[in-house]
């Protein structure tokens, strides 16, 4: 019996020889649309892990510099990270200024502070190597020493020895008054 069992051209029209391209087009288009749908679905699933609007809106903080004693530092928390506010002694200040541009990248101390407020240094207290919090007043350069992998920073927060690739990062901040700073 002659049953029309299957499409004589084959289900995809592939048995018809030279005409295949045109016949395949619709299947390719359907496949492409399916792939496009996959990408469109994937995007929101990936993007949802980006910082949320409330995280992005995290407030800046204000800080009163007069709370820091000479030769000491105060650690404050800003956007989940420690920030070092250091009031340097005249001897420390003289030393870091005399050294000129050092560290990585080479920077003078003046490039890392605000004019008129040179004695205060504000840096993010997280080692540029792998993120540990460096210890205050330790290491060979009298600044900070990172206990995790032995990076030495000077009193200007510049990397002088050890595996850390960069100087301690100076966050964006401004003086609102003579003693009040706004970080962020």
């Amino acid at each position: 019996m002659a049953e029309p069992v299957v499409n004589p051209d084959g289900p995809m029209g592939q048995n018809e020889g030279g005409d295949a391209t045109r016949r395949d087009f619709i299947h390719i288009a359907a496949g492409a649309a399916a792939a496009g749908a996959g990408v469109m679905v994937a995007w929101p699933l990936i993007n949802q892990m980006s910082p949320a609007a409330d995280t992005l809106a995290l407030a800046s903080i204000e800080f009163d510099m007069s709370k820091v004693q000479e030769g000491q530092q105060v650690v404050i928390k800003w956007q989940g990270k420690p920030v070092f506010v250091r009031y340097r002694t005249p001897a420390e200040l003289q030393k870091v200024e005399a050294e000129g541009a050092v560290g990585s990248p080479a920077q003078t101390d003046a490039e890392r502070t605000k004019a008129g407020h040179e004695k205060y240094l504000v840096v993010i207290g997280s080692c540029t190597h792998l993120g540990c919090v460096p210890t205050f007043n330790a290491g060979e350069y009298g600044g900070w020493f990172c206990p995790c992998h032995g990076s030495h920073y000077d009193a200007s927060g510049r990397i002088r020895k050890g595996p850390a690739p960069l100087n301690l990062i100076v966050p964006a901040y401004e003086y609102l008054s003579d003693t009040r700073v706004k970080i962020g």
């Binding site: 929101p44 993007n47 949802q48 980006s50 949320a52 609007a53 409330d54």
Partner: peptide, 25 residues
Amino acid sequence: AMHYTPHIDMAFASVERIMRDVPGG
């Protein structure tokens, strides 16, 4: 589940945060 908080004081608010702040939440 990455954004939800299973706590009676925070569950409702965490769902609202998903609706408002999480990108595409």
